[in-house]
Amino acid sequence: NSASGPLPDGWEQAMTQDGEIYYINHKNKTTSWLDPRLDPRFAMNQR
């Protein structure tokens, strides 16, 4: 992992069949290639 600590509440790390890691936001029912622990847009929304 490139980030430390647990994923934010509602997020899950998953892997594609090709072995690529992505992240699932169960609250918004969206997915992201960016780790939410590193995404400044997500961090701003949590303050």
Rank of each mutant, 00 (worst) to 15 (best):
T30C: 15
F42N: 13
D9I: 05
D39W: 15
H26V: 07
M15W: 09
P40T: 15
Q13I: 06
S2T: 11
Y22R: 01
K27W: 06
L7H: 05
P6T: 09
D39N: 12
I21Q: 09
Q17C: 12
A14Y: 04
K27V: 09
R41L: 15
L34G: 07
N1S: 03
Q13V: 09
Y23V: 01
D39G: 12
M15T: 15
T16N: 11
L7M: 14
Q17D: 14
W33A: 03
I24K: 04
R37M: 03
R47E: 09
D39K: 13
T31E: 00
Q46R: 07
S2I: 12
K27F: 06
R41S: 14
S32H: 03
T31H: 00
S32E: 02
T16I: 01
N25K: 01
E12H: 06
A14T: 11
P8R: 06
N1W: 02
I24Y: 02
N28Y: 15
R41A: 15
Y23N: 00
L7F: 14
D18S: 12
E12S: 08
D35Q: 04
I24V: 09
N25S: 11
A14Q: 10
K29N: 14
N45S: 08
N45R: 06
I24Q: 05
L34C: 10
P36C: 00
D9Y: 06
T31S: 14
T30K: 01
W33V: 03
Q13Y: 06
L38S: 15
S2K: 15
K27N: 10
D39M: 15
S32F: 00
E20L: 04
A3K: 15
W11G: 01
N1E: 06
E12A: 06
D39L: 15
P8I: 05
G5T: 10
P8Q: 05
E12V: 07
Y23D: 00
G19D: 06
A43Y: 06
A14M: 12
S32D: 01
N25D: 12
P8K: 09
P36L: 02
T30I: 15
P8F: 04
A14F: 03
P8C: 11
A3M: 12
D18T: 12
Q13F: 04
S4R: 10
R41T: 15
E12I: 02
K27H: 11
T16Y: 02
Y22L: 01
K29F: 04
G10H: 05
L7W: 04
A14D: 08
D18R: 08
